[in-house]
Structure formats: structure tokens, C-alpha cells
């Protein structure tokens, strides 16, 4: 397939994509800090948030390095608008109740784990290094969220009802995760990454295993829902999230403490 994208530009976009997913998920989870359902879960979800923001820092630094215009991870995080963000629609969805958050994170973890696993074989050693560091954290995220899926899905009538509702709500955003874009073809051909569609089978088989144990019903696939966070076409929620996350740097550019 002929493409106008250079491998270098594709890597820049890919690093943004990986970084933005981590940053937006991390920010969403940070909103739970001080509001967790129990002190222990408050700390746990904040730990995961910090893992993801740490990973985002590595990816966005790589993006800045590949771009070569001197932009740091902070520049990329705080001075891009929603149309320039590359995260999945899934990751920016509001926290809602605990069920909504757990389902969102679980669906993301299943993608994230398979992607990082594949990136361990990347031709770019910087990508391998970030993936190798991240995957240990993500194995734990997956375990943590899988257990909550099962605990609440196979819990009380009320927890089951909330989980099923959350699953239906978040499932709509799943299509985008395993859809190949032009960018992915370039990345796959240059050995930097793999086609997201190649991750689908393993990810879905993991998801279905957990759903079964959680006694949750897999919602019907939603195919007519084609917003694309990766292309910068976001839901209404991202703008609000960025307004909060970027407010200090927008008001006082370059401010440090």
C-alpha cells in the first residue's frame, strides 16, 4: 500500500496516540483521588493513574524527540487542543459510578496489554524500552480490573445491573480500538508496531473469558458508531477534561513549582 506518510511521521503520531491514551485514562482515574469507594481502592486507582501518566510521559517525550521541534512531554500535554489529541473515545468517557470506570479501564487494558506485548518486538528500540517498562504495570491493571469485573458482575443484583449497564455504554466505543488506519499500515510495514486488527482475537478472547466468569452478557457490536479519537474527532467530554487538565498551564504558560 502506497502512503504519503513517512515512517518518522507515523512514529510521531503513534507515540502521541499511545501517550494520549495513557494521559487521558490517567487523568480520568486521578479524578477518583479522594473519592474512591474505600480508602484502599482510592489508593489503588490513584496508583494506576500514576502508572498511566508515567507511561504517557515516556511516550510524549518520544513523540517530541521524533518530531524534532523541541517540544517536551509537557508542551504536548498542555498545549494541544482536543482536535490534536489522538486518544480513543473510550478513554475520555466520564467516570460515572465505580462500575462505569472499571468497565472502561478493563476494555482499555485488554487492548493495552496486547499492544504492549506486540511492541516488545518492535524494530525501534525506544519503543521496546517503553513497552517493556509499561507492560509490568499493565499486567497489574488488567488483573485489578478483571477482578472487579468478576466481583461486581457476579456480585449482588444491584452490582450486576450496574455492570451490565456500564458494559452496554462503553462497548459502543470498542470498534475503534481494533480498526486499522493508514498510519498503522506504515507502522506495520516499517516494523515499528503491528496492525490493531491483529490484536483483536486475543483481546476479545480475554474479554469474553472475564465476561463469562462475571456472568455478564456481551453487548451486540455497534457498527454505526464511527467517531474516531485517533483522528481527533472526539466526544464532547474531552474538551471539558482538557479545560481542567490544562487550565494552570494555559493561564500561566511555563509555570513550574
Amino acid at each position: 500500500m502506497q502512503s504519503s506518510l513517512s515512517p518518522n511521521h507515523a512514529l510521531f503520531e503513534f507515540a502521541l496516540f499511545m501517550g494520549d491514551n495513557g494521559l487521558i485514562c490517567g487523568h480520568r482515574l486521578s479524578e477518583w483521588t479522594g473519592h474512591g469507594p474505600a480508602l484502599e481502592q482510592d489508593i489503588a486507582i490513584t496508583n494506576i493513574s500514576l502508572d498511566l501518566i508515567g507511561q504517557a510521559t515516556s511516550w510524549l517525550n518520544l513523540a517530541g524527540e521524533v518530531e524534532g521541534k523541541g517540544r517536551s512531554a509537557d508542551d504536548l500535554a498542555y498545549f494541544r487542543s482536543d482536535r490534536q489529541y489522538r486518544n480513543f473515545l473510550l478513554t475520555e468517557q466520564p467516570n460515572g459510578d465505580w462500575a462505569m470506570t472499571i468497565v472502561r479501564q478493563f476494555l482499555f487494558d485488554c487492548f493495552h496489554f496486547e499492544m504492549l506485548q506486540a511492541l516488545l518486538n518492535s524494530q525501534d528500540e525506544r519503543v521496546v524500552a517503553i513497552a517493556a517498562k509499561s507492560i509490568k504495570e499493565v499486567v497489574y491493571h488488567l488483573r485489578y480490573n478483571s477482578e472487579w469485573m468478576i466481583r461486581l458482575g457476579d456480585g449482588t443484583v444491584e452490582s450486576h445491573r450496574r455492570m451490565q449497564r456500564a458494559l452496554k455504554e462503553q462497548w459502543r466505543f470498542l470498534g475503534e480500538l481494533y480498526e486499522d488506519q493508514e498510519l498503522d499500515q506504515v507502522l506495520a510495514e516499517s516494523g515499528i508496531s503491528v496492525l490493531p486488527s491483529s490484536l483483536k482475537q486475543a483481546a476479545f478472547s480475554r474479554m469474553r473469558g472475564v465476561l463469562k466468569e462475571a456472568t455478564l452478557k456481551e453487548p451486540a457490536a455497534v457498527t454505526d458508531f464511527k467517531g474516531s479519537g485517533r483522528k481527533g474527532i472526539h466526544s464532547e467530554h474531552l474538551g471539558h477534561l482538557l479545560a481542567v487538565m490544562q487550565s494552570v498551564q494555559r493561564a500561566y504558560p511555563g509555570q513550574e513549582w
Binding site: 484502599e40 481502592q41 489508593i43 489503588a44 496508583n47 485489578y144
Partner: peptide, 11 residues
């Protein structure tokens, strides 16, 4: 117990 191990890890 499972949750206790994870909470202990996190806390």
C-alpha cells in the same frame, strides 16, 4: 483474601 493481597500491595 485476593482483594486483601491487592490492597496490601497498593497501600
Amino acid at each position: 483474601a485476593e482483594m486483601a493481597i491487592e490492597n496490601a500491595r497498593d497501600v
